[in-house]
């Protein structure tokens, strides 16, 4: 590869998932992140009870992300051949875990009735 510019990266991701799916995922991620910040600012505190539940959902997100990438790229675990493969796979898992935690925390904040501050 000669140069790696942001526009090349966007084009690469459009190719990986298809243009529609990629931008739908970007919009979803942006909306969820915005909603997350919204509830943090609205509540002015982190609810550790919700956070615990969000943490419990992280392994689900990690495993889900890994299987999604494997499915999208005709790959399987036996294809992992070297250190960089493990690193990329772990990065996918971490991204899935964090994304899932944010999603769960945000959903909880919207769906669970807010208790009045003590």
């Amino acid at each position: 590869m000669k140069e790696l510019t942001p526009s090349t990266l966007v084009a690469v991701f459009e190719e990986i998932f298809g243009r529609g799916l990629f931008w739908a995922m970007v919009v979803t991620a942006a909306v969820v992140t915005l909603a997350y910040f919204y509830v943090l600012i609205r509540d002015r505190r982190v609810s550790w009870q919700k956070f615990l539940f969000a943490q419990l959902s992280m392994p689900v997100g990690a495993v889900g992300a890994v299987f999604f990438v494997m499915w999208a790229t005709h790959s399987e675990f036996a294809d992992i051949g070297g250190p960089i493969d493990v690193i990329v796979l772990l990065a996918v898992a971490v991204a899935g875990a964090i994304g899932m935690a944010i999603l769960v925390y945000t959903l909880e904040s919207f769906l669970v009735r807010r208790k009045p501050l003590p």
Partner: peptide
């Protein structure tokens, strides 16, 4: 000279996008 999954990802998913960017004179 190592058989890698990331090199497969490059060929299978990233190469066409890079190629298209090249056609447009952007890469």
């Amino acid at each position: 000279l190592e058989e890698l999954w990331v090199s497969w990802l490059m060929k299978e998913v990233a190469l066409k996008a890079t190629y298209n960017a090249m056609l447009r004179g952007r890469a």
